[in-house]
Design a protein around this nucleic acid. Structure first.
Length: 566
RNA sequence: UGGGGGAUCGUAUAGGGGCAAUACACCAGACUCUGGAUCUGGAUACCCAGGUUCGAAUCCUGGUCCCCCAGCCA
């Protein structure tokens, strides 16, 4: 029982695949697919499935992963979604090469399969109304009853089905059903509908069809047509597996893929259902599918998430059948991990407090050396201007500092990053409000660059910008969308939207950033030292008016101390 | 008195008769020109009850709790 310890741990799906490879089940082939319905934008939950399917293909010699649009319901699908989905999958770093498919490509083939089923006496046209079909289906505890149309002859079924296709009947008047078992304890097996009449324009086939196949029929056959070996889907389809297998067995297809189910991703402090996301978009709770607060790939991209961080996250959460909710802190950790490595450092002041360095020569400007990324010397250095009037962060000064606050305070000395030690000598306050509006400080010319030749230490280093040279910027502070860990928890309680975080977005219009950011490219991500990672907004930012999105804060020990204190 | 799944630190994932492991989160400390990063240490878990066994998270029996299914959605 002692297995070699060098083998990487793997999930139950990879274990199944490895076993199949060992037994030669699919002649050594591994073929997966990612099969989205183009009726919404992809979200982080889809990313889990995308990473799983494409990675499994990549891990196996000759493995492939298809992108297939499951577009069998023209009523709610749209090219806008197919385009966004392709963009997102590519952005995540995956390549379906020439294997882009649509279930609608198979409509003719699927129709022929349906005819075959009718000829075998395994499908019939049912002319019950939708309401009647529901009644005949029975309930969870009571068996269903056979439809009165169940015994139509093959000839009649063939004729009717052909005329359904020809458009002779109105929507809802007839359906094609599989003839299985109305008393099955599995409701999916109680003569499921496999074709319905829908006189709708399809985004790819136009008006060519007025009957459309249902998911259960389409999916297994599409998998089979594409010679998929492992059809990986989420848990709610477990009950559908017998039906998946039934169609493939009855139709005696050459390729019979194995359906394997895993638990979908739930993330704390957000929602993942397309319905809910759609509602947020349509109701204006967010600005769109790509709102940086959305768990959509488009939203996360705009927020400043990187594909690598998302992939690392999907790898770390693992794959299992247990339903679980992953802490969003893990996602943020993966993000920080990557950004810490690659984001250039820069200084920006979110809430400026004016500082006059009394003993610094008026009109003088010095260019000081700053390191672009202490984690990566290859990223080089830059010059930043220092002058007599500066801005520091309002939060970095307290007139009456508590014990653990070791930033600037009256009489106290701190370091300005890459610049000088300064000491606060005077506090100017607004007479009416008592608010601190300006600080007078002195600097020690000996500490140029940030070190004191006499070896004295300071407790804090502050970020700053030079008032004369800095750039104005707008900064959008994003926070989690919901206040509740699981907004959908209460079934009969308040609506998920009542848990929306009213402070999920705070807009700061009076921010200052260092001059080097003048031509920062849309989408590029910086670390604002001591604050967090910020990304130039791709939609609203320009070199005339810079807009930054806060991607994620830095870990903040002081914020923790403050929180615990209060 | 329908069927299908699931249950291991706070969270997620390993371990499938022999020291319960890893990551995040948390706590403490070291270091630091970012209260960042890094490093060290720590606390915390096998749903319950029986049984088999020298030994059970793992095998057996019986419970409990949670999730999914009654679309002409996917």
């Amino acid at each position: 029982m002692n297995s070699s310890s060098s083998e990487p741990s793997s999930d139950f799906i990879r274990t199944i695949i490895a076993e199949d490879l060992k037994t030669g089940k699919n002649n050594g082939r591994v073929a997966t697919r990612f099969p989205p319905e183009p009726n919404g934008y992809l979200h982080i939950g889809h990313a889990k499935s995308i990473c799983l399917n494409f990675s499994i293909a990549a891990e196996n010699r000759g493995g492939t992963c298809n992108l297939r649009f499951d577009d069998t319901n023209p009523g709610r699908e749209d090219v806008e979604y197919v385009e966004s989905i392709m963009k997102d999958v590519k952005w995540l770093g995956f390549d379906w090469q020439d294997r882009l498919f649509y279930a609608s490509d198979y409509f003719e083939q699927l129709y022929q399969y349906a005819v075959q089923l009718i000829k075998k006496g395994r499908a019939y046209v049912c002319s019950l109304s939708p309401e009647q079909i529901r009644q005949y289906r029975g309930t969870l505890t009571e068996p269903g009853r056979d439809s009165p149309y169940r015994s139509r002859s093959v000839e009649e079924n063939l004729d009717l089905f052909e005329r359904m296709r020809a458009g002779e009947f109105a929507d809802g008047t007839h359906v094609l059903r599989a003839k299985i078992d109305m008393s099955s304890p599995n409701l999916n097996m109680r003569d499921p509908v496999i074709y319905r009449i829908m006189k709708a324009t399809h985004h790819r086939t136009g008006n060519k069809w007025c009957i459309y196949p249902m998911y259960d029929f389409t999916h297994c056959l599409s998998d089979s047509i594409e010679r998929i070996t492992h059809s990986i889907c989420t848990l709610e389809f477990e009950d559908h597996r017998p039906l998946y297998d039934w169609f493939l067995d009855e139709l005696e297809v050459k390729c019979h893929p194995q359906q394997i189910e895993f638990a979908r991703l739930s993330l704390s402090y957000t929602v993942m259902s397309k319905r809910m996301l759609m509602e947020l978009v349509e109701h204006g709770d967010v600005t769109g599918w790509d709102d940086p607060r959305m768990p959509t790939i488009a939203g996360m991209r705009r927020r400043g998430y990187t594909p690598g961080a998302i992939r690392a996250f999907c790898k770390r959460i693992g794959v299992a059948k247990r339903e679980s909710m992953v802490d969003i802190a893990l996602l943020e950790h993966c993000l920080r991990e990557e950004l810490n490595r690659c984001a250039p450092r820069v200084m920006g002041v979110l809430k400026p407090l004016r500082v006059i360095v009394d003993n610094y020569p008026e009109g003088q400007v010095e260019d000081l050396d700053a390191i672009n990324n202490p984690e990566d010397p290859a990223m080089g250095a830059r010059k930043i201007p220092f002058s007599r009037v500066l801005y520091i962060e309002q939060d970095d000064f307290m007139e009456e500092p508590p014990k653990k606050f070791y930033r600037l305070a009256p009489g106290r000395e701190v370091r300005l990053r890459y610049a000088y030690f300064i000491k606060c000598v005077e506090v100017i306050k607004d007479e009416k409000t008592g608010k601190v509006v300006e600080l007078h400080c002195t600097y020690d010319p000996e500490t140029r660059g940030g070190d004191a030749p006499d070896g004295r230490k300071v407790k804090a280093t502050l970020h700053w910008v030079s008032a004369a040279c800095c750039l104005d910027a707008e900064v959008r502070l994003y926070d989690r969308l919901f206040l509740k860990e699981n907004p959908c928890e209460e079934k009969d309680g308040p609506d998920f939207k009542s848990f929306l975080n009213p402070d999920s977005l705070k807009i700061l219009k009076d921010c200052r950033v260092e001059p080097g950011l003048k031509d920062a490219k849309p989408g590029s991500i910086y670390q604002f030292e001591r604050l967090g990672y910020f990304c130039v907004d791709e939609v609203d930012s320009s070199s005339e008016s810079l807009v930054f999105n806060r991607t994620v804060t830095l870990r903040d020990a002081w914020a923790n101390i403050k929180k615990r204190g209060s």
